[in-house]
Design a protein around this nucleic acid. Structure first.
Length: 265
DNA sequence: ACATGCACCTGGGAGC
DNA sequence: TGCTCCCAGGTGCATG
């Protein structure tokens, strides 16, 4: 499920529910020792990572990968079929990590390990520091790369995944296989504006949702039914811009959706 | 540098 | 209903 807008939404949902809570018990033995008795100081996000800094140092880091979900549920409620980690909290609640595909993870990092992990990540695309000049500098450094693999590279820019990479490229009218170094200034400007606009609008759309609604749309071809997407998993449907049929192709092994007319190579 | 393929895992939907 | 096949919103690594 989650790319930057979804993870940010989860973080905003969790923050008031977890801040100041003490961890009373942990379902996974390896995490019990560093977590039990600690208090969650805050809930933050970097790239697609959920960060729960703890009192007395250290941070619980969660990556939801493809299918992970984080919920605060009543501690008395039996955990769902895919629950992988349950933190029982002060106040009769539990933080539950569900992950059908088991690719997600939760680890406790000390401050040095956390800093090292975060240092490998590219810039936050919605931060003001990620301006046109910053993008152009990064495009130049990776000028032989194709655009979609670049957008998917966590070291190039943080938080963009397969859905929003396609949505960004459609909005910018750029072909997924175009070379970064071949972008004329107007194309680079379109790419920059599209990153900001697509992610910003997606975040606003998530914010308007009740968190439980995410359960309904998660998994499978669920994304295809999402009304806020222009091209992703909409092959065969008319392009919202020119009405030509959208097509599916494969780039870097990932399903890739585009309008071959609007996004000419 | 960059592309490609695979690895990690499991499940859901489509088609028969 | 039940099978098989295909696909899956992430990332790191190994190889050419």
């Amino acid at each position: 499920m989650p790319e930057l807008p979804e993870v940010e939404h989860i973080v905003r949902y969790l923050r008031p529910r977890l801040t100041g809570r003490r961890i009373e018990a942990v379902s996974v033995a390896a995490l019990a020792r560093p977590l039990v008795g600690r208090t969650i100081r805050d809930v933050a996000r970097r790239a697609k990572l959920v960060l729960l800094p703890l009192d007395r140092g250290g941070t619980l880091v969660v990556h939801l990968k493809l299918t992970g979900k984080l919920w605060v549920r009543p501690a008395a409620e039996p955990p769902g079929r895919h629950a992988r980690l349950v933190l029982r909290l002060s106040g009769e609640d539990a933080l539950v990590l569900e992950d059908a595909r088991r690719l997600g993870w939760a680890r406790v990092h000390d401050d040095a390990a956390l800093a090292a992990a975060l240092a490998r990540l590219g810039p936050e695309p919605l931060e003001p520091a990620f301006d046109l000049a910053a993008l152009r500098a990064r495009l130049h450094a990776r000028r032989r790369s194709r655009l979609k693999p670049l957008l998917l590279d966590p070291a190039f820019v943080a938080g963009i995944g397969n859905i929003y990479a396609d949505e960004v490229l459609f909005a910018a009218r750029l072909h997924p296989l175009a070379r970064a170094g071949d972008l004329a200034p107007p194309a680079a400007r379109r790419l920059h504006a599209a990153i900001k606009r697509v992610l910003g609008r997606a975040l606003a759309a998530r914010t308007a949702e009740v968190p439980d609604q995410e359960r309904v749309g998660a998994g499978g071809r669920g994304a295809a039914r999402r009304l806020d997407l222009a091209v992703f998993q909409k092959d065969g449907q008319p392009c919202p811009r020119c009405r030509a049929a959208l097509v599916r192709t494969v780039v870097q092994g990932r399903g890739t959706y585009l309008c071959a007319r609007c996004q000419a190579e």
